[in-house]
């Protein structure tokens, strides 16, 4: 393998550090750099077919298609305990260079809520692939045209409006909305998956949802649901289409809310520096492929590739936000 790769090494790339090197899609790499010797376990904290699973398998297929890794990545599903099983499994794999994990915000929510002995600091941060927006949706047949109209109605009738969401992650978002706006209380109904939540909105079993764009986009296009506000500081101006017409919560309600779903990649605890560099490079190459870029655009994901210290500070901020909201609303398990 090594000799095979070295044939492709061009003179310029040898000089540059490994990270920059790996932007190049061709398999050109410093011959001394670390490469996986065994198949890599790609841990998914969800069952087959869940949101993270779909994304993980998508990444694996891109890696296969463009031959970005000398050894295959193998998806390993660990759906138990709301992701707790996966988090603890990866934590056990100390210094294993062949285990990485993809995780959404359950990384923060599950440990706080269930009290398992886990913190994201146990793992080795590799990179952030994308951030998913949260949007406040109502049924298209409802009379509420703006977020203000809707929330005023909710204020007038505490617990009289049903907010649907995925398990506990969207409950955090709901509470965030409640505290930022003030004076309102939703009747929160948890569901198992985001797609299910949006269909329940279409069927009018709930009054509103805080779905990610990908979960509701097709129903929006079909005129069944209506977006009222983006829970972010800026409008979704980076994608084509109608997304940028949705106002932010600041514009619609005067409430400054930013809550994003991280789509992050972590490595096993204590992963060595050269190993981290390999995976960072790998994810960066994946991120640059046209397939991944199209996926970002179709689902209105915030697609900046973040790694290193910037990634850690983002994690830190998100962690603080979760601790704050979840403590305030009694969602943290008492030890």
């Amino acid at each position: 393998m090594v000799s095979d790769v070295s044939k492709h090494v061009s003179r310029t790339t040898v000089v540059i550090i490994a990270l920059v090197l790996s932007i190049v899609a061709a398999p050109s790499r410093d011959a001394a750099a670390w490469e996986p010797r065994n198949p890599v376990e790609f841990v998914v904290p969800a069952g087959t077919g869940g949101g993270s699973d779909v994304l993980a398998r998508f990444l694996v297929s891109i890696i296969d298609k463009h031959k970005l890794s000398p050894k295959p990545l193998v998806v390993v599903n660990k759906p138990g305990g709301g992701g707790a099983e996966a988090l603890l499994y990866t934590k056990e794999k100390k210094e294993d260079p062949h285990t990485i994990m993809i995780t959404p915000n359950l990384l923060f929510v599950t440990p706080l809520h269930t009290g398992i002995p886990f913190s994201w600091k146990d793992l080795t941060p590799i990179s952030l692939l994308a951030e998913d927006l949260f949007i406040l949706w109502v049924n298209a047949e409802s009379p509420y045209m703006t977020a203000k109209q809707y929330l005023d109605a909710v204020k007038a009738k505490p617990l009289g409006f049903k907010m649907g969401g995925t398990a506990q992650e969207d409950q955090v978002v709901t509470h965030l909305l409640e505290s930022a706006v003030g004076g309102l209380q939703f009747n929160y109904v948890p569901f198992k998956g985001g797609g299910e939540v949006c269909v329940n909105l279409v069927g009018k079993h709930v009054d509103s949802t805080v779905n990610n764009p990908s979960e509701c986009v097709s129903h929006w296009k079909a005129g069944k649901v209506r977006p009222l506000a983006v829970l972010d500081r800026e409008r979704a101006t980076w994608v084509e289409g109608q997304w940028k017409d949705i106002p932010t919560t600041k514009e619609a309600l005067g409430a400054d809310i930013q809550y994003l779903m991280l789509r992050a990649i972590f490595g096993a605890p204590g992963m060595k520096k050269d190993v981290v560099e390999f995976y960072t490079g790998l994810m960066k190459k994946v991120h640059a492929t046209p397939e991944f870029q199209k996926y970002l655009a179709d689902n209105a994901l915030k697609g900046s590739f973040v790694t290193g210290a910037e990634f850690v500070s983002k994690l830190d901020a998100a962690d603080k936000q979760h601790v704050e909201v979840m403590t305030k609303h009694g969602m943290v398990k008492k030890k």
């Binding site: 010797r37 065994n38 198949p39 376990e41 295959p72 193998v74």
Partner: peptide, 20 residues
């Protein structure tokens, strides 16, 4: 499982030593 379907099974020291 390992080659065709890429589903890893439980492995022990011998398999790891053999490089899987």
């Amino acid at each position: 499982f390992e080659i065709w379907f890429l589903t890893p099974m439980r492995k022990g020291p011998i398999e790891i030593w053999l490089g899987f």
